[in-house]
């Protein structure tokens, strides 16, 4: 196994969770990872040898954009299907909170979701995200802001009060 393959192997969890956030169900996410890696191997020459993760996530972002174009007309099941699709129970302990959060993430536009994931889960700085997605910094900030406000609105919109059990 080459060093590049080793590097990619270590990145598989990161690639999968980003793919899952973009495509929102496990099957599509697996396909997205596979297609992105296939494309990466076919174009290894284009990789400048630094920041493998950023390069792969960028390929995946573009692959996903292209996919949405071609699939926009098709009916498809599109939500993160909670229990089965997220690898293991994680996140808010209460399953209701978990489902609400997933539903709120699902409601974001793919552009907002991808910025949010790159910042929050992958830990990229805003300027790095701007470079990876090929968008101005201001656009990164406005997408991040909209994503956060939308999630907060969505979670509070239900007027839910968590209560101690009697």
């Amino acid at each position: 196994m080459t060093r590049t393959e080793d590097g990619i192997l270590a990145l598989m969890p990161a690639l999968r969770r980003y793919a899952l956030a973009l495509s929102r169900n496990r099957q599509d996410a697996e396909d997205l990872v596979q297609d992105s890696l296939e494309a990466a191997f076919a174009n290894l020459g284009a990789w400048r040898g630094a920041n493998l993760r950023g390069w792969l996530l960028t390929i995946m972002t573009n692959m996903h954009r292209g996919r949405y174009r071609t699939q926009a007309g098709r009916a498809r099941h599109d939500a993160i299907e909670t229990a089965g699709d997220i690898a293991a129970p994680a996140g808010p302990d209460d399953p209701l909170e978990r489902d609400r959060l997933i539903a709120a993430i699902n409601l974001l536009s793919p552009e907002q979701r991808s910025v949010l994931m790159l910042v929050v889960v992958e830990g990229y700085a805003y300027t790095e995200v701007a470079a990876m997605l090929g968008i101005p910094l201001g656009t990164v900030m406005s997408r991040l802001s909209r994503a956060r406000h939308a999630i907060a609105d969505n979670l509070s919109g239900h007027n839910i009060v968590g209560l101690r059990r009697p």
Binding site: L9, A10, M12, P13, A14, R16, R17, L20, A21, I86, A87, A88, P89, A90, G91, P92, E97, R98, L101, I102, I105, L116, M117, V120, V121, R148, I151, A152
Partner: peptide, 16 residues
């Protein structure tokens, strides 16, 4: 809190 929950939600990915 959103950040913590989102990270926790996606942190369970492991190599296959």
């Amino acid at each position: 809190q959103q950040n913590r929950h989102i990270r926790a939600l996606f942190s369970a990915e492991v190599p296959q």
